Structures are given as C-alpha cells and as structure tokens.
Simulated scan of single mutants.
Amino acid sequence: MTDITTALANKPIVEAIQYLLEQYPGAVAFSTSFGQEDQVISDIIWRNHLPVRVFTLDTGRLFQETYDLMDLTMARYKQPVEVFFPETSAVEKLVAEKGPNSFYESVENRKECCGIRKVVPLNRALEGVKIWITGLRAEQSENRHSMETLEWDEQRRLYKYNPLIHWGYDEVLSYLATHQVPYNKLHDKGFVSIGCAPCTRAIEPGEHPRAGRWWWEQSHKECGLHG
C-alpha cells in the first residue's frame, strides 16, 4: 500500500484516477448515491472520459427527488449507471416478519434493514473490484475524521480511494455551481445527507450534517457501508 499511496500523493483527482485505471484496468468502480459529493465525482469522471464503472444502490425506499436526479444525471451525461437492488426474497421475508418500518424499533432492526437493502447489494456490486472510489468527506461524521485519501478495506480486500476526503462543504458547492452539475433539490430544503426516505429528515441550522439520518437513534450514524 505504501507504493500506491506514494504514487497518488499530491496527484490531482483526474491524474490519480488515471493512474489507478492503469494499475487496475477494468477493476475500478465508483459508487454513487447521487449526493452532492458523488455528483462532483461523477462529473469529474464523465467530463474527463475516464473509463470508471459507475454504479448505485436502489434500496426501494429512496426519495422521488433522488430518482428524478438519477434520471436527469443519466440524460445529462449520457453515461450508463449500473443499478443494484436488494434480494427480493430477503426484503419479502423482512417485511413479512417485522413489517415495513421495523427500523424505527431498534438499532439492531435498523442495521438489519440497512444490511439487506444496502450492504449485501454493495458487496455484489464490488465483486472483482480492486479500487472502490467513494465520495466520503472527513467532516461528514466523526468516524470519518481519521480516514485517508487511500485506505485498505480488509473486509472486502480492496482499496478505497476517497478523493474528496479533505474537501470542505464550500468546495463541493463551489464545484457544483462552477460546472453547473445537477443536484438533488432536497438539498435546497435543508437536507444535507440524503438516504432512504423514511430514515432521512431535513436538519436545522447549526445541526450536524448527519443529524438528519436515523435521527431517532443516539448511536453513531452509519449504515454499514463505510463503518
């Protein structure tokens, strides 16, 4: 990992991705949830014609605004986005046994739902991938403060490349405005971190960016994709 970390040091994002594509041809993928950070990375990839595989997870509980943005983004860039869904049988079993809103009842139930709808489909999407590009930023949540630009994911046996990890929120907004990148209209209504509709609310001024995710819990606000 030292060699690849050294090679990426101080490289602009486009050059870094080009290097990773050269080192791992056909095995570089970017996961987008169509959040602001992910829209920045998608624009960088497609604007520079980088042959990175782009995919998203459709949990079946997303906001209509997210689907609208997905449609707009695909029309704007005319590039394919692979969509991974949860396993039908697993969702059917969960809802039949615990109802459609079991995630409100306990942290364990919420993590079970996230596992079925997000983590399992993600693991399928990442099969054969050596470099997983993410839109993570350090200031998004406490457990991301210590993350580096390049990390080794031991569980999935791949590298995570986090090109925006040290970006500030203002830098993200500036990029979107400068390049006129489409974004989720919920961001204009106080939604910063957008996930599934039943598990996301707008935040108040001064609240932490992740306060709108699983707001009824006091535990750390992660779904299992990144921790």
Results as ranks from 00 to 15, higher is better:
V81Q: 02
C114M: 04
R117F: 08
E127K: 04
G35T: 05
E154H: 15
Q155H: 14
A75Q: 11
T59D: 10
P80H: 13
E65G: 09
A138I: 05
E142V: 09
E82F: 04
V107Q: 03
I41T: 03
P86T: 08
G35D: 09
R61V: 05
T149Y: 01
T149K: 08
F55T: 13
V40L: 04
N48S: 00
L158N: 13
V91E: 03
L62F: 06
R61Y: 13
P25D: 08
S33W: 03
T66P: 06
L57G: 00
R137F: 01
P100T: 03
V107A: 10
M74Y: 08
R117C: 02
G35H: 07
W132V: 13
L122D: 10
V28N: 01
E151F: 11
F84L: 15
F103Y: 11
W132G: 08
F55W: 12
A75E: 11
F84A: 11
I131C: 05
A75H: 11
D68R: 12
S106C: 01
E148N: 08
M74F: 05
I116V: 08
V28E: 06
V120D: 00
T88Q: 15
I131D: 11
D58M: 08
T134C: 09
G35Q: 07
A75I: 09
F55V: 12
N101Q: 15
V52S: 07
L136T: 12
I133H: 04
L126N: 00
R76I: 10
S106N: 00
A29H: 02
K118N: 09
L122C: 12
G128Y: 00
N109F: 06
Y77P: 08
G35I: 09
G115K: 13
V95L: 08
E112Y: 10
R157F: 14
F63T: 11
I131F: 03
A75R: 13
N48V: 00
R156Q: 13
E37F: 01
D153R: 11
K118F: 07
M147K: 13
P121Y: 04
Q155G: 15
G135Y: 01
Y24I: 05
V119L: 14
Q36S: 07
E65I: 02
R137G: 02
L158K: 08
V83M: 01
V83H: 00
D71G: 08
T134V: 07
W152C: 05
T73N: 12
R124K: 15
E105C: 01
V119R: 15
R53W: 03
N101L: 15
L57P: 00
R157A: 15
E148W: 01
P100R: 06
S33I: 02
D43T: 04
F34R: 09
F63C: 10
D68Q: 14
L136S: 03
A125R: 02
S106T: 06
T56R: 05
P51N: 09
R76H: 12
D71M: 11
R144N: 03
E87N: 12
T66M: 04
K78C: 10
R47W: 04
D43W: 10
R53K: 10
V120W: 05
L126Y: 00
V119K: 15
I116M: 02
Y104T: 05
P25N: 01
V107Y: 05
